[in-house]
Design a binder for these strands. Structure first.
Length: 879
RNA sequence: GGGCACUUAGCUCAGUUGGUUAGAGCGUUGCGUUCACAUCGCAGAGGUCAGAGGUUCGACCCCUCUAGUGCCCACCA
């Protein structure tokens, strides 16, 4: 009646299904006072971004949460959007222009920014299309961009507020400078990488003497800016230098000697050259001892005019040249291998140069305090929990945040200077005239803000803040934030601070930190390494659901995932399995039979064991899946569903049902289990479940339009039955035992085989007789009898708890082999009995272990003893 | 220098109030298939849970140490 194709083809329907959801407005979150809200804000991907496996994992997890909670009856909002990604985007567009031979300076600021907006129009929503391909049920009508009008207003508002509060200041400090991007970076944007470098030992002559002291440095080029030498006051080696002056080699600048306990006597020679304009430690010493700051480099890290002969050289070139010159003058002693951590630009990986320059900063300590409290008080929880400590350690040692960037793409700093009187004005809107002198000669600060200065407002700016919109009121605070560990400091911590400061409330309740997607060797996937597995390729090859299901089921909570392409077969095969099971059921379903309420039906019908069993398993598993989703254990949830659908429902129940499929009870159970399984699976595999669900016979009203707006199945606790599950397990064991005998003795399925089962007691006999047909059919027996039986000659035997299964094997059986088989079984059981017996004899065990554990052990022992007795009997009369 | 994670079957990985016989996928061995599915079915083989010590009646699980691997943070130039 309702035909499905023989194999599942994801490409035929995914796009149409998605379009339908979107058109019907099912992704839309409304402010609905009669429902409870559930909201998530997406970690906004960069507009330069293209979908990679990290996104695939991150956004699949969010979609699972959103779809699950939508089905659970929450008013659901998944807020999507993109990040303008200041430096990254500017770099991309600069590169594009470079191909046409154009520099951004040729265009000028305004035209260059126009160029980026144009680029964004053409390419900036690629990632959004790809997220749709992934099946994400984001509320696209609300899609935000960190540079759109509303969010820009939020940024200005925040800047002005923090400035007025004294939490934003401008200062001349050592910051991380990327000479390639030619901008300041925050501490987080400078990534430390171990580098094999050299530690150079250089002589610094003592003025007016033949003496010298030796200084060790990794960056000799910065010596051009040296103003002092520092030693530890406890260092006896340098005691006598107190009143002397040193000479800077080559430039012959006079250098002071300062004594400071900060200097490590054990490192190098114990003498530190002090270059306040080029090193953070030296900067600090410079402040303390009021030293001159001599900047010897240009913005591109070439040496400036102070560097004399070295002017114009790149920093590394200058390093070589200086070493050569020092050698010529006999001032070079040696260089030794030295491995140390060097900061690199997180965008272009150029070595960062510590540089003295005027920048804007946010004072973080006051912002951090409430954010620390929110986590300490448990109002925000991290999953896995260990990230709490990482967060708190960072927050407790937080340093001020450098927020100004010397680039053009971004939120321009709302600070205006009067060129006449020097007044500084911090305002959301540009002033017409100077507030102090009244003249109109006003200039805006040329810098823009760090990209993260807009991202940290994301959980409320996207809902309309600073306006008090109904959405903000309804959906804030959000429920879960799903992200990767790399951006805990960049983003998560700062969002918490911003939330506490501007909303006076946490931005989200749970933070789920998932692992990093790596290649099979454990290396992080990156385009430049060429080790990426492209999710879109995988979608083409295996289908979206396969991608989603596979990546989720192989990623355990918070662990990194090592990916290889063949892992996607798991999801594809599972989809096909489900498809074919559905196909089979639909082929056999009589519509008029199934329109019943399952609970009523269950109460009023005498269901047979397999039906009672599969329903019990359905609800047991459903219960577990819900629990796992609540604990962010997505792989466990996925695996439970996989195991249930494939191995319990398909392998056992459907196989059993084949012979009884025309009966009403079987029809009902097949349909109900399939239908509820589809719902349970829908958050993980939205497309195939929708497609099959659309083929199911059902009412045709609007509420019945799509599986994604159906309620999550309710766990019917009274249908869960330990007895049914235990009984069925016993039947399965008997069938498996007989199949095993067939396999061991190499009896092809085509060959007839019969069996006898020896039972003790009426109850067992009744139980077997009730399930006789099922056992017979699934073990391919021509005849099966149960009762008080003795073993026929030439039989193989298998003991299943209290049952002895005899399979006559005239002409096939080899008694030595059978004896060996039983012996092996006997050994296994007797060794287990031994260990249980020892345990039960142990007084400490019986006195200390809980009652139920002891009872279980006793029962187990009794079972095993019964089994071994039967095996021994059979061993005795083999033949 | 500080911190975190990992080490379980040939491979990739699951495994929490500590309690029978440690699981899965892939691979592998044997058998099978017109009758939902070879993207399949049935039955197997395969593990001293990194090593050492400790706590406990009982440890893959808790504690200590060791070894190896990976990651994060850090102003030893």
């Amino acid at each position: 009646m309702r035909e499905l194709a023989k194999a599942y083809d994801p490409h035929k329907s995914e796009d149409a299904i998605y379009k339908n959801w979107e058109c019907k407005g099912y992704f839309r979150g409304k402010t609905n006072p009669s429902k409870k809200p559930y909201s998530i804000v997406i970690p906004p991907p960069n507009i330069t971004g293209i979908l990679h496996m990290g996104h695939a994992l991150n956004d699949t997890i969010q979609d699972i949460l959103v779809r699950f909670n939508r089905m659970k009856g929450f008013e659901t909002e998944w807020m999507p959007g993109t990040d303008h990604a200041g430096i990254a985007t500017q770099n991309v567009v600069e590169k594009k222009l470079a191909k046409e031979g154009i520099k951004r300076q040729d265009l000028g600021r305004d035209k260059f920014i126009d160029e980026i907006w144009r680029w964004r129009k053409d390419y900036g929503s690629t990632i959004i299309r790809q997220l749709k391909k992934l099946g994400c049920s984001c509320d696209w009508d609300r899609t935000r961009f960190t540079m759109d009008e509303g969010l820009s207003e939020a940024v200005l508002e925040v800047f002005v507020r923090l400035y007025k509060k004294g939490l934003i200041y401008r200062g001349n400090y050592i910051i991380n400078w990327c000479p390639r991007c030619q901008t300041a970076l925050s501490d987080e944007e400078s990534q430390h990488k171990d580098v094999d470098g050299l530690l150079y030992h250089i002589k610094y002559p003592v003025k007016g003497s033949k003496e010298f002291i030796v200084v060790a440095t990794t960056r000799p080029e910065t010596m051009l800016g040296d103003v002092a030498i520092a030693v530890n006051p406890k260092d006896k080696r340098y005691k006598d230098l107190k009143d002397k002056t040193l000479l800077l080699p080559i430039l012959n600048r006079e250098l002071k000697i300062i004594y400071d306990p900060l200097v490590d006597m054990k490192f190098g020679t114990g003498a530190l050259k002090v270059t306040p304009a080029h090193d953070p430690v030296d900067f600090g010493l410079g402040q303390k001892y009021n030293l001159e700051q001599i900047n010897v480099m240009n913005e591109d890290a070439t040496i400036n005019s102070i560097g004399g002969d070295y002017e114009g050289m790149d920093r590394l070139e200058a390093r070589e040249a200086i070493i050569t010159d020092l050698k010529d003058r006999g001032l070079f002693i040696k260089s030794e291998a030295h491995r140390h951590a060097v900061g690199h630009c997180y965008r272009c990986h150029t070595m960062v140069e510590p540089r003295l320059s005027p920048q804007w900063f946010v004072k973080m300590k006051p912002l951090a305090e409430p954010a620390i409290a929110a986590v300490n008080e448990g109002r925000i929880k991290f999953y896995p929990e260990r990230w709490t400590k990482v967060y708190l350690d960072w927050m407790n040692n937080i340093r001020d945040w450098c927020i100004s960037r010397q680039i053009w793409w971004g939120h321009r700093i709302p600070v205006y200077y009067c060129k006449d009187c020097g007044e500084v004005m911090v305002l959301k809107l540009p002033p017409v005239k100077c507030s102090k002198c009244g003249l109109q000669n006003i200039e805006q600060d040329p810098d823009v803000l760090d990209t993260w200065f807009s991202s940290w407002l994301w959980p409320f700016s996207t809902f309309g803040w600073p306006k008090e919109s109904p959405e903000l009121k309804y959906f804030y605070p959000t429920n879960s934030l799903v992200t990767a560990q790399e951006i805990i400091f960049f983003w998560v911590a700062r969002m918490i601070m911003a939330g506490m400061e501007f909303m006076r409330d946490i931005p989200f309740k749970d933070v789920y930190i998932h692992g990093t997607v790596r290649d099979i060797t454990g290396t992080k996937m990156s385009k430049s390494l060429g080790n990426v597995i492209d999710p879109l390729d995988m979608i083409k090859k295996y289908g979206t659901d396969a991608l989603r299901f596979s990546i989720v089921s192989i990623t355990s909570q918070g662990q990194d995932v090592f990916l290889s392409e063949n892992k996607f077969e798991l999801g594809r095969n599972f989809a096909n399995k489900l498809w074919n099971a559905s196909r089979f059921i639909l082929m056999n379903l009589k519509e008029e039979e199934i329109a019943v309420d399952l609970c009523v039906f269950f109460k009023e019908s005498e269901l047979a064991l397999p039906e009672r069993w599969i329903l019990s398993r359905l609800y047991s598993n459903l219960n577990d899946v819900e629990r796992c989703l609540g604990e962010y254990k997505f792989n466990e949830a996925a695996n439970i569903i996989y195991e249930f659908i494939w191995h319990e429902f398909c392998d056992w129940y459907i196989e059993i049902a084949k012979s009884t499929i025309t009966e009403k009870s079987v029809q009902v159970v097949l349909y109900k289990v399939l239908e509820k399984s589809l719902r349970m699976l829908h958050p993980f595999m939205p497309f195939i479940t929708e497609e099959i669900w659309q083929k199911l016979p059902r009412k045709n009203d609007a509420a019945d339009d799509s599986i994604m707006i159906q309620p999550w199945p309710h766990v019917q606790k009274d249908i869960i039955s330990n007895k049914a599950e235990g009984d069925m397990k016993c039947v399965i064991n008997i069938i498996t035992a007989i199949r095993n005998i067939r396999s061991v003795w190499n009896i092809p399925p085509s060959r007839e085989m019969s069996a006898l089962i020896n039972v003790h007691g009426k109850k067992d006999e009744e139980f077997l007789n009730e399930n006789m047909e099922m056992i017979k059919r699934l073990s391919r027996l021509s005849s099966l009898e149960a009762g008080k039986k003795s073993k026929p000659k030439n039989s193989a035997v298998s003991v299943v708890v209290t049952f002895e299964v005899y399979v006559p094997l005239e002409g096939v059986i080899d008694f030595d082999k059978e004896r060996a088989r039983l012996k092996k079984e006997e050994e296994r059981i007797s060794s287990e009995i031994k260990s249980i017996a020892a345990r039960l004899k142990n007084r400490h065990f019986t006195s200390k272990a809980p009652e139920d554990v002891i009872e279980k052990q006793k029962a187990r022992k009794a079972d095993l003893e019964l089994q071994i007795k039967k095996i021994k009997d059979n061993l005795r009369n083999i033949g």
